[in-house]
Design a protein around this nucleic acid. Structure first.
Lengths: 202, 202
DNA sequence: GTCTATACAAGGATAGAC
DNA sequence: GTCTATCCTTGTATAGAC
């Protein structure tokens, strides 16, 4: 494996274990048996390293969503998609828990506002699609309400999990929050949708 | 005002403006016209300073909840309480946004698990009280579901607000997330409860 | 292109004089 | 209570070996 890849792999491992702020470039270098300066060569700033990891996480998430959009809208399909997303988020917990740092970096890098908007329309499309498919029954501003729920929940379930129930395994945590999400969706589900949800967890 | 108080006031101001990680002890000292060493005298570690600010925030929050418990359970009462809590959280945004740092500190300081449990039973008591008062209609595990919702939402609405809509003023942000909370509660409200909710926002 | 060694700046923390 | 001086760690930059 190339050094660059090794750095990324090892960094993520350390970030997940100790948090971004606690892991210094010297730590990473030591774990790899290379010099700190070598890190600087591959990633001039620690930010660059983090940004690369964030981009990879996002790429996997996007793939999950794309798979969803390539099929027929359904609640089980959506939950399966979110299971993939949650699992991926869990694998990058170190980045997500270091919220502040990550936010600062992304803020400088992207048109953050645009990314946020895209995220929202994304979910709105999904929910309206589920309504059209007869899975959800959405009145007046229910779709926007669900979008608000989804953006907050989808971003912070993992932080909540670590704060509230740090003893859970990855599978347990993902399933727990997937069920909470399903329960929320059930509040807006048609009879058909409720059947879909029940079948998903069997 | 004693130097100790001045330090706390100024620190919070700077933390809110720039984030905990971005504000150094030297910055705080310079803004106060005292030496960095003087800060160390009053707060040996930066952690100690943060911890004191967190404790004060919590004290105000507890006061909000105590006021609620001293009255008759009602949805408007609860929302009013949460408006106070949200407002207080907003005033301490710097601490809450520096999630990682704060969590590390609290983890060492308290029996964190116990605090989390207390928080949950707290909300459960509130929701069961609202059900008993005829405001909410809770079946089987609805109460636990709402508690899960409330702990996550109550902790992360402010982060979500800054990520998602950083342009909002304090009042706008607090009202926005208070309405989202109300909307969630409305999903479990009795006819009486729905009336209560509507009256609250008029 | 890849890596080591090393220097520098900035931040938290401490000791000791006043 | 307050200050100065100093130490240690961490992120960052670069000169130069291979």
């Amino acid at each position: 494996m190339k050094t660059r890849e090794k750095i990324l792999t090892q960094s993520l491992k350390l970030f997940n274990a100790q948090g971004m702020a606690q892991v210094g470039v010297r730590d990473i270098a030591r774990h790899l048996g290379v010099s700190p300066g070598n890190l600087s060569y591959h990633f001039p700033k620690k930010e660059d390293l983090v940004l690369e990891l964030v981009n990879r996480m996002r790429a996997v998430n996007d793939q999950c969503y794309n798979t969803y959009f390539s099929g027929i809208p359904s609640l089980p399909g959506f939950l399966q998609t979110m299971r993939g997303v949650f699992s991926n988020q869990y694998d990058h917990q170190g980045l997500l828990i270091g919220q502040e740092e990550m936010r600062r970096i992304l803020f400088n890098e992207y048109d953050y506002k645009a990314v946020e908007e895209r995220r929202k329309t994304h979910f709105k499309t999904i929910f309206l699609g589920l309504a059209a498919a007869g899975e959800l029954k959405l009145e007046s501003e229910d779709a926007d309400f669900l979008v608000s729920y989804m953006t907050l929940f989808g971003r912070f379930w993992i932080l909540e999990s670590f704060v509230s129930t740090p003893e859970l395994s990855k599978e347990e945590a993902v399933e727990k929050y997937l069920r909470l999400l399903a329960r929320q969706l059930a509040l807006f589900a048609t009879e058909q949708g409720k059947g879909s949800l029940n079948s998903f967890f069997e």
